[in-house]
Computed example of a mutant assay.
Amino acid sequence: MRKRTATAWGVAILCFVVLMLVTPAIPQSQEYHNFADQREFLGIPNFLNVISNFPFLVVGVVGLVLCYYGNYFKLSLPGELFGWTFFFAGVAAVGFGSSYYHLEPNDARLVWDRLPMTVAFTSIIAIFIIERVDARKGTFSIIPLTLAGVVSILYWRFFDDLRPYAVIQFVPCIAIPLMAILLPPMYTHSTYWLWAAGFYILAKIEEAADVPIYNVTFHIMSGHTLKHLCAALVPVFLTLMLAKREVAEERVSLLQMWKVSWTKVKLNNANVETISCEYSGLTLYASSCKLNPMR
């Protein structure tokens, strides 16, 4: 197991080094700060982009309270409480950091927007390792992964290169759905992970379509505002999952469950076709008897 773990880390580091060597630097475009909706209301500039971060604060605080209130989430594995604390603290901090950034968008303030998001991303990866791979290794990975996220932000800020940050941000988008589908969970309600991943991807699409959405909605709401609201649904779904889940009686991956369900559907369809054929045969025989009453 140790050999496989070392190999996996070695491959990951090698891939990252190769990526840094063969790809050009990605500087922060200053056009990024030019959001579609820049309206001021109640003396607050970029009003909707600022207040749409409030759900992050609410969900983050609620999650932190439930983590420590009578073990409401039933966090039994070593390191789970630590990992989810990092996650919900990061989510709550997004409410402050992103609002601070949108009051006056620039690179210096963007650091405080991205930093808490990175803490949330990296803690989620550690939580997955705790739940589905090895609790001890996942617990020890929380701090290194968080530090890797912080370093990616500092690297961007000092060298104006977004490549490490892009890896930290987008790897979870691929890794979490794959791990949720392929690795058998310890708890029930694993599909909530897929809902959370789906809404995060939708949020990124809305972010990219900031101006078109603003125009389509007749300047009522921009894509970036919708991005905040959709992204806030990610911790909402994960909070619901924590509140509902129980320890699974049998550890079966979602892929295996889907295969079993598909097999049952195919068998049910086959049974329906067989019954239909038999019924048709009986009908034809009965009709034949009526036509030949002397037989």
Rank of each mutant, 00 (worst) to 15 (best):
I26A: 03
I26D: 01
Q28Y: 06
Q28E: 14
S29G: 15
E31C: 07
E31D: 13
Y32P: 11
Y32L: 12
N34R: 14
N34H: 14
F35L: 08
F35E: 04
A36F: 03
D37M: 04
D37C: 04
Q38F: 01
R39I: 05
R39P: 07
R39E: 11
E40V: 12
E40G: 05
E40D: 11
F41Y: 10
L42R: 02
I44V: 15
N49Q: 04
S52H: 06
N53R: 04
F54S: 11
P55C: 00
P55K: 02
F56K: 00
F56S: 03
V58D: 00
V59A: 09
V59N: 05
G60M: 01
G60A: 02
V61E: 03
G63H: 02
L64I: 10
V65A: 14
C67K: 10
Y68P: 10
G70Y: 08
G70W: 09
Y72A: 12
F73S: 07
F73P: 06
K74N: 12
K74D: 12
L75Q: 13
S76N: 12
S76E: 11
S76R: 08
S76I: 07
S76K: 09
G79Y: 09
G79N: 14
G83E: 05
W84L: 10
W84D: 14
T85N: 10
F88M: 09
F88S: 12
G90F: 02
A92Y: 03
A92P: 04
G95L: 02
F96S: 04
F96T: 05
F96V: 12
F96G: 02
G97E: 01
Y101L: 06
Y101P: 04
E104N: 14
P105E: 02
D107R: 12
A108I: 10
R109L: 00
W112A: 05
D113E: 00
L115Q: 00
L115A: 01
P116F: 01
M117V: 13
T118I: 12
V119C: 05
F121N: 13
F121T: 06
F121S: 11
S123E: 14
I127S: 14
I127C: 15
F128S: 15
R132V: 03
V133W: 11
V133F: 10
D134C: 06
R136F: 07
F140T: 15
S141P: 14
S141I: 10
I142C: 15
P144V: 08
L145K: 09
L145N: 09
T146Q: 08
T146P: 09
G149E: 06
V150K: 01
V151C: 07
